[in-house]
Computed example of a mutant assay.
Amino acid sequence: MVAEGLRVLFCGINPGLWSAATGHHFARPGNRFWPVLHRSGFTPRQLAPHEERELLEHGLGITNVVARASARADELSREEYETGGRALERRVARWRPAWLAVVGVTAYRAAFGERQAGVGPQERTMGGTRIWVLPNPSGLNAHWQPAAMAEEFGRLRAASEADLTDG
């Protein structure tokens, strides 16, 4: 679900089995993406996965690094990540979002060979698109609690809003 010139293009790792079955991103109950997106101020209310098209009204979109669905991201091969990274670069060149937000530091590292990357803004860009790595909102990611996750998403929101006032 994308359009040209988005403020932020969120990029998940790959569809989970629940998301693949429903046809909606971050659809598994317990995934914290939608609550964190709202809590960080990106949306005026918490959207449900089936309402994802409403993101376009806010200059936001969603895609994935890898298209193949799996129960867990660790089922993906290095080749799938690298191939997905190259495909994502082509999509970013076509859609030209201001920010690409890769949701999952492990996915970013694997897709782009950035072994030392951490959460936050990255030095690497894709053309004019800046990159921000966000924590993975999966319920399996116990390292990040919702409040801290919302704070990091909020840092990206503030940066993307600053772009609107600067430009």
Rank of each mutant, 00 (worst) to 15 (best):
L6K: 10
D163Q: 13
G167C: 09
S160D: 13
A87K: 13
F10I: 13
S70Y: 10
L17A: 10
A158I: 05
L76R: 10
S77H: 07
R78S: 08
E75F: 13
F42G: 09
E89C: 15
L156G: 04
R53V: 00
V133R: 05
N141R: 03
Y108M: 06
G30S: 08
G16A: 01
V102R: 05
G113V: 03
C11W: 00
E52T: 14
S77M: 04
W144C: 05
R109T: 12
T63K: 06
E152G: 00
E52I: 10
L100T: 05
E57A: 14
P15C: 05
F153W: 03
P135M: 09
R124G: 03
V36N: 08
R124P: 02
E82C: 01
S77R: 08
P137C: 10
F42P: 04
S77Y: 10
E161D: 13
F112P: 10
P15V: 07
E57K: 14
A150W: 00
E123Y: 03
A147Y: 07
S70M: 09
L55M: 11
R124Y: 03
V8P: 00
R53S: 01
P44H: 05
E52S: 10
S138P: 04
N14A: 15
G127T: 01
T125R: 15
G104Y: 11
G128E: 13
Q46N: 04
L56C: 01
L88N: 08
P29F: 07
R96Q: 15
E123T: 06
L9T: 13
V103G: 00
V2F: 00
E161L: 14
R157Y: 10
S19N: 03
R78D: 14
L17W: 03
R130K: 15
A48L: 07
L47K: 11
V8K: 00
